[in-house]
């Protein structure tokens, strides 16, 4: 049975809704990736450690830690210690999962925290091919890797089925509402902007970039009907609650073609 990764909103109606098989994505405002454009923009959606502790008793929480590149700061003593402190704080505050994309941090989680937190590999790692499994084959331990959110650039239904067979016990998760491009240059620059550092000009450039490259973007085509055995990711930290709620309804009602891409709204 697949699970659903959704953004967390501190809202009673949302929190009281069905939570079986749901994992809620959130983060704290202050962490090693606080300068990331996406997380800086979405800082109002961050929760406090106290709130996390109180929610984690009732709901499965996943910490969004998927900034990919830290300019090699993860290999400095200060950077390493900051990252470990962040991970330990997640664990202490009841997070069951961490969404992560930096290869070294994935290995750190697998080697040092395998009993304490489960890993969901972000689409930022760009796992989009059956052969990408080699990434996991060289790790010493992958027991705590639960899911991989597949990157869908150049990935279509047939190859996805191949990937599902190849990856075996590691579940594949499908993002349903994001812009996808089969043009590597467009796709990579788009993600570079979202997960680069914040500055005043990025948002304006990002909006312009999306508009200019509209014809290179497409919607997902990995799933055409709701399949309970597949795990899904909907929404993103920073998107207004109504959009993922609406998209979730479409998914559950098997109206996948109605699911709206969130990237156009995310940067308004």
């Amino acid at each position: 049975m697949g699970e659903m990764l959704l953004p967390l909103y501190l809202d009673e109606s949302f929190m009281d809704s069905e939570s079986e098989g749901r994992i809620y994505l959130t983060r704290f405002e202050q962490d090693f990736q606080k300068d990331c454009f996406l997380f800086h923009e979405a800082r109002d959606y961050a929760i406090s450690p106290e709130e996390a502790r109180s929610i984690s008793g009732r709901h499965q929480l996943c910490y969004a830690y998927d900034m990919f590149h830290f300019e090699n700061r993860e290999f400095t003593v200060e950077g390493y210690q900051e990252i470990c402190k962040d991970i330990e704080s997640m664990i202490d505050n009841g997070f069951k999962y961490i969404l992560v994309s930096n290869p070294y941090i994935i290995e750190l989680l697998c080697n040092e925290y395998s009993k304490d937190i489960r890993v969901i590999v972000s689409s930022q790692l760009e796992i989009n091919h059956a052969h990408s499994k080699i990434f996991f084959d060289v790790l010493n331990n992958t027991r705590n890797i639960s899911y991989i959110v597949v990157s869908q650039n150049h990935l279509h239904k047939q190859e996805f089925e191949e990937m599902r067979r190849t990856f075996g016990s590691i579940g594949l998760m499908v993002e349903l509402d994001r812009l996808i491009s089969d043009n590597q240059i467009v796709h990579e620059q788009f993600n570079n902007m979202i997960y680069g550092y914040y500055n005043d000009s990025v948002k304006c450039h990002l909006k312009e970039y999306i508009e200019e490259n509209r014809r290179y973007f497409r919607k997902q085509d990995l799933v055409d009907q709701f399949d309970e055995n597949i795990s899904y990711k909907l929404g993103e930290i920073g998107v207004e609650k109504e959009l993922p709620e609406k998209n979730l309804k479409h998914l559950l009602n098997n109206e996948l073609e109605e699911i709206q891409v969130i990237d156009y709204d995310l940067w308004q």
């Binding site: 454009f37 590149h69 550092y197």
Partner: peptide, 10 residues
């Protein structure tokens, strides 16, 4: 360098 981290826009 692929990792300009949005500095190129400044």
């Amino acid at each position: 360098n692929n990792g300009l981290m949005n500095e190129e826009f400044t």
